[in-house]
Design a binder for these strands. Sequence first.
DNA 1: AACGGACTCAACCGCATATTG
DNA 2: CCAATATGCGGTTGAGTCCGT
Length: 273
Amino acid sequence: MDTDYTKSVHMMRTLSDCGSSAAYTNEEVVVMKKGPWTAEEDSVLINYVNVHGEGHWNSIAGIAGLKRTGKSCRLRWLNYLRPNVRRGNITLHEQLLILDLHSRWGNRWSKIAEQLPGRTDNEIKNYWRTRVVKHAKQLKCDVNSKKFRDTMRFVWMPRLMEQIQASNFGRQGQITTLCNNTKAHTEPCVTMPSMLSVPTSSDRVPINLMGGGGSSWSSLSDSFEKGSTSTLCTSQKREYSEVQEVEPCNDFGGVDMWTDENICFLQQLLADD
DNA sequence: AACGGACTCAACCGCATATTG
DNA sequence: CCAATATGCGGTTGAGTCCGT
């Protein structure tokens, strides 16, 4: 049933639009529906894909009688109806991955989505725009600036890892160290990407992840300088994968790292620069 | 309870690229 | 090789919801 807000678009159909088994005659005018999908339309699309498989989206209108463009059908299937689509809050681990991958690939949403099973490019894009970009603005910082990227990479991501670790520790009662150095370390640490190709004792720089005194942008920036534009090294990727391994379930997916306290911490850090 | 601004996210749009005839 | 068509991608929009006043 069309609602008041449902818009429609008139399209001149051609045989090629409908495929070989087109139900429409040449130049027949078809009103293509726009706007939110109904359960009935979803059902038609699901049945179509079950029978014909994915693809041939432009044939759906002709074959299944669904008055939607091929693009609309494809999007609806990929972002909503496809099996194994994960819905709900982005978990801490997913946030960590998004930050990591975005720092390497930029706005390559589909590529990033490939690394987050069940998440769609649309969802990740929305997360980035509604959370990360929003908070960057709040911090009066360009989300694409080196300063912001470095802060994310060398402060925010370790902080996320810390939070994930704490969550796992609280739930499982076991410690999984993300810093796999053999020496006992009294402080949280983060691996400096640029230096990992030449592992030394200076590879790991202590960072106060809890936002207390002592850690500031200025004191970290020199250490970051050399590696800030390099891609994450294998060992750091391994560390993030370890985070995944110690997170057997995502039952703390609703945890939001963008708390007032954390944002205040970032503000201080960026202001120190 | 009513209002309005902020926020979220599903869906659309335009463009780029791939495929097909 | 070229044109037409299909598909994919990233940016943007706007309806619905939330939340503070």
